[in-house]
Design a protein around this nucleic acid. Sequence first.
DNA 1: TATTAAACGAGACGGTACGTCCTGTCTTGGT
DNA 2: ACCAAGACAGGACGTACCGTCTCGTTTAATA
Lengths: 207, 207, 207, 207
Amino acid sequence: MSQDAPAPPKRGRPRSAAARRKALDAAREILVRDGFGRLTIEAVAQASGVGKPTIYRSWSNAQELAMEALLEAAPDAPLPGDGAAPREALTALLSRIVRAFATTRGRQIAMALATADPDSEFTRAFRNRVILESREAGRRLLLSAVARGDLAPPADMDALLDMIFGALMFRLLAGHRPLDPALAHAIVAQVFGSPSGPPLGTDAAPT
Amino acid sequence: MSQDAPAPPKRGRPRSAAARRKALDAAREILVRDGFGRLTIEAVAQASGVGKPTIYRSWSNAQELAMEALLEAAPDAPLPGDGAAPREALTALLSRIVRAFATTRGRQIAMALATADPDSEFTRAFRNRVILESREAGRRLLLSAVARGDLAPPADMDALLDMIFGALMFRLLAGHRPLDPALAHAIVAQVFGSPSGPPLGTDAAPT
Amino acid sequence: MSQDAPAPPKRGRPRSAAARRKALDAAREILVRDGFGRLTIEAVAQASGVGKPTIYRSWSNAQELAMEALLEAAPDAPLPGDGAAPREALTALLSRIVRAFATTRGRQIAMALATADPDSEFTRAFRNRVILESREAGRRLLLSAVARGDLAPPADMDALLDMIFGALMFRLLAGHRPLDPALAHAIVAQVFGSPSGPPLGTDAAPT
Amino acid sequence: MSQDAPAPPKRGRPRSAAARRKALDAAREILVRDGFGRLTIEAVAQASGVGKPTIYRSWSNAQELAMEALLEAAPDAPLPGDGAAPREALTALLSRIVRAFATTRGRQIAMALATADPDSEFTRAFRNRVILESREAGRRLLLSAVARGDLAPPADMDALLDMIFGALMFRLLAGHRPLDPALAHAIVAQVFGSPSGPPLGTDAAPT
DNA sequence: TATTAAACGAGACGGTACGTCCTGTCTTGGT
DNA sequence: ACCAAGACAGGACGTACCGTCTCGTTTAATA
C-alpha cells in the first residue's frame, strides 16, 4: 500500500517505531479517558512526548490517528469455530460485539466513523477491518446454516446481514434502548425462527 | 417539572423570533452547502447577521444548532395511510427514508447524532423526532400486518424494528454498499417473506 | 446650560433620585473594592438593581459615572483658615492631599482623568472640582504669604502652582518614590526656603 | 533572579524578530492614527498579519504592547551637553519634553501609565525608560549648577525634581492651561530665580 | 379622580474584543 | 535524515460589555 516505490533507497534516519507506539498509546489513553472530542494532535503530542510534525508524518489528522488507535484496540476477532452449530456461533459472535460496543469504545468508533471523511483511504481500511470483518464472519455462518438446512436461503444475503449488524449499530447510536446481550438472542431468533417454533423465513419443516 | 412557576411574568424584552429564524436559515444553508464540519457559530453569525451571543442564548453549541436546523428541515413524515396494505406501506416508508438519507443531509444527521453529547436534552429530542418517529410508524405498520394475518407475530418487536431501520443506518454509515431503493424492497421481502413464497417468520409454513 | 428649552413641560414621571443614588453607591463600592477597570455599567446595574438604560440616562459612559462617584467621595476640602500662617496652612493643605491620594482612590482619580475624553464637559467639571479647587486654595495661600512678606512675589504664579501640585501627581503616577507626608514639607520648604536658613534658589550667602 | 538556569538549551524554533517588528509597527501606527483606546490586540493582529497568539506570547495585554511601542518611539534623549550652562541646558531639556508631550503621544503615554498595572514589570521598565530618564538628566544639570554656584543646594533634591517634571505632567493631564514652551522657561526662572532680578524665595524681598 | 406620558426593572439585541485552544506548517538544535 | 521542541499564521471558541432597543410596570403631574 505504501510500498509502491520499488526501490526505497532508505536514506537518512528511519522513522522511529517507538514514536509511533508512544503516539498510539497516548491516543488510546486519551480516547478512553476523555473521549473522542478531546483527542487532539496537540494533546497527543503533549502526552506522548512526540513532536507534532512527527505525528503529522504518520497520520494526516486526528481522525486517522483515532481510527488507528481504535483499530489496534479492537479485539482480534477470534471468530467462532465454523464447525459448531451456526445458530449458536452467530449468537456468540453478536454477543461479543455487543459486549465490545457496550464500552465507551463503541461510541467512539461510531463517532470516528461518522465524523471522518467517508472517502479517505484510511476510513475505508477502518471500515473493512473493524466493521465488515465481523459482517463477513456472519455471512459465513449464515451460509453454513443454509448448507445444513437450518435456514432457508435468503433472497438477499447482504440485506439480511445489514439487518443483523445494523440493528446493533442502530441501538448504539440512537440509544433508544440499551444495547444488551438480549438483543443478540432476539436477532438470532428473528433470523432463525423461535427456538421451539418453526424458523423464521423458512418454510422448510423442522423435520 | 416545568410547572413550578405557574405564572412566569416574562419580564424583559422577549427573544426575537426573527433572530432565531435568521440563524436557523443560515445554519441550514451552511449545512447544505458546506457540510457539518463547517457549521461554525462564527460562520452562522456572519452569514445571518445575528450576533454571536444571541446565538449562544438559544443554542449552547454548534451541534445543537445543527440539530435544530436539521430537525426543521426533516420532512414532516406524511406517514402512509394505515388503511393501505401494510407491506406496501412499509416499503413506501423505507423508500422515503432511503431517498432522504441519500442526500447530503443523511450523513449530516448521522454525524450530528454521533458527535453530540448523547445525554443532552437536545440530542434526545432530536432522536425522538428524527429517528424514532419513523420507527414508530414502522411499528404500527407491522402491528396492522400481524392483525391482518400477513405476518407472524414477532417474538421481539423492538428487535425486529431495529433490524429494519438499523439496516438503513448501517449502509449509510459503513458505506460498504450503496443505500439505494433496492434495499427497502429487500428488507420488506426479508420480513414478510418473498412476494410469491410464504412470508418470513410465518407459521403458515409447516404443513 | 441645560435650560435652553424655554418651556420644559415636565410631563410624565420624573427621574428617580433613588435610582441615581443606588447607582452611585454601587459604583463607589466597586471602585473601592475592584478598581477602575472593573467599573462597568453592566456591573453597576447588576449590583445596584438599577436598569442599564436608567444609568445611561444619567451618565453617558462608565468614565462619567466613575467621575461622579469619585467626585462625591472627595472630601469636601475644609480649606484651612486663611487667617493662619500661610506657610503652615499650605503644608496642611498638601498633607491632606497626600493622605487622600495615598488611598486607592488617588490612583483611580488619575486613571479616570487620563482615560476620559479630555474635552468632555464632565471631565472639565471633574477637573475643576477635584483638581483645581485645591490649586486655587493654594493660590490664595501663596498670595496671602506674599502680602505678609513671607514670600517673594513669584514671576509666574501659575507655573509655581503647577510645580507644587504637579509634584504630587507626578509621584502618584510615576511611582518612583512614595507619595508620603514628607513630600508636602519638602515642597513647602522648597517654595518658602528652609525654615531656618535662607530660602531656596538664592545665592544670598547664609550670613 | 533570571540566572537560575545557567544554560537554557534554547530548544525549539526561536521567536521571530520579524513578527515582533510587524506587531510593534502596526501598534505604533494605530496609536498615532486612532489613539490608545483603539489599540486592540485584534486590530494589531489584523493590521500586522501577525497571529493573535503570537502577540500574546510577547505581550500579555494591549497596555504592555502599547508601552513598548511608545517606548520605542520615544526620542532617544540626546541629552544636552553637560558642559554647557546648566540653566540653559535645563531650559532646553524641558522645552524638548514640552514639545514631545504636545503631540498626541504625550497623552497616550499618560493614559498608558495611568491605566496600566502599576506593579507590572513592564510598567516599571516603561517608567524608568520614558519618565525617569529625563528626570535623572535634570538631576545632573541641577547638580552641576550647584557645583558652579548658580544654584543654592536644595534641601530635598528629589522633591525639587518632582516639582519640575510634575509641573509638565500636571498641565498635560489636568489640562487647565496649555502645555507650551513658556512653561519651561517659567519653571527654570522659578528654580534659578529671574534672570535679572533676585531668585525665587529670596530674602531680597526685604522688610 | 382619571389620564397619560415618561421613567422604571429587566433583559434581548447586533457588535467588538477578549484571551484560549487547536490546526497544520515551518524552523531550530540535537542526536 | 529524522527527531523533540516549539514558534508561526490562521481561525473558532465561548465570555464579557458595549450602547440600543423593546417589553410590561409603576408613578406622579395634568386635565
